[in-house]
């Protein structure tokens, strides 16, 4: 297929006097991390396929400030957050979708106190809504049919923001066998990356947190782990690789699973 994938930029649309329906907030990981870029691309393809009127900020986007704030650096958080809010308000952004739970949480729950009020959805919810409204159909008999898939609840989508059903509904559509991990939903176990842990060495201990989670995943017997956070994906992939199971267990984002299932290339 030779579809021309479009990624409109906010600035270009504004110059043409247009306001897109929704802003796709890509985030640092989605922009720079090689693995997360694949998720960004997959989600962009879905947005294109479903003819969603969207745009990205491109160079005008900055880190939301989540890791700085949670590390304790309120100055850096405020600087980047206020800058983003200036940009978002300038473009009169009303609705934002992002594939990163940390960006999602900060935009949704923390920007209002700084003067940034938007309707923010995570791509998990957005995808589920596309399916519910019939804009996106998951093809039957896809590559995942009959496969054992498990889902890793990210802290900031699950426990912090209470979204447990949307990802599971999407996975059920893929015609696979969904197995739950022992610690799931409200009891989900962290991958170890949050709270700015991603950006430093672990404190002394007997084990890395991602290994604790990986062991549980391996115990579940699933061959595919679905996640919806770029940091979880990195952590779990590291865990699977460290356990030398990278050929048996695949770690994917929900958007990637849909793209692969539907053969969107």
């Amino acid at each position: 297929m030779s579809t021309e994938w479009k990624v409109p930029k906010m600035a270009d649309l504004a110059a043409a006097g247009k306001e897109p329906e929704i802003l796709f907030w890509v985030g640092c990981a989605g922009s720079f991390d090689a693995r997360a870029q694949k998720v960004t691309v997959a989600f962009t393809k879905i947005l294109n396929e479903c003819n969603i009127d969207f745009a990205i900020l491109g160079q005008e986007e900055s880190c939301t400030g989540d890791p700085a704030r949670r590390a304790g650096n309120e100055f850096v958080f405020q600087m980047t957050a206020l800058q983003n809010i200036e940009t978002l308000n300038m473009y009169k952004v009303k609705k934002i979708v992002t594939a990163c739970p940390h960006c999602f949480n900060t935009l949704k729950n923390e920007y209002p106190a700084l003067g940034g009020n938007y309707e923010v959805v995570h791509h998990t919810q957005f995808l589920q809504n596309l399916i519910d409204t019939g804009k996106l159909t998951i093809k039957g008999g896809g590559v995942f049919q009959g496969k054992k898939i498990t889902y890793h609840d990210s802290c900031y989508i699950g426990r912090v923001n209470g979204v447990y059903e949307a990802p599971r509904k999407i996975l059920e559509q893929l015609d696979n066998q969904l197995v739950e991990l022992k610690r799931c939903k409200t009891n989900g176990l962290c991958c170890g990356a949050g709270g700015a842990q991603m950006f430093k060495e672990d404190e002394p201990g007997d084990k890395r947190i991602n290994m604790e989670r990986t062991e549980e995943i391996l115990d579940s017997g699933a061959t595919i782990v679905a996640a919806n956070c770029p940091f979880c994906i990195t952590m779990l992939q590291d865990g699977v690789t460290a356990s030398e199971k990278q050929d048996d267990v695949m770690v994917y984002d929900l958007a990637e699973l849909i793209v692969n299932n539907n053969g969107i290339h």
Binding site: A29, F32, T40, S62, C63, P67, A68, A71
Partner: peptide, 23 residues
Amino acid sequence: PMFTSIENNGAVWQLPDARDKWT
């Protein structure tokens, strides 16, 4: 480095690439 990078480049990592290079 994470703090300085956010402050100076608006990203958690100090990278030479443009933010929208993936496009």
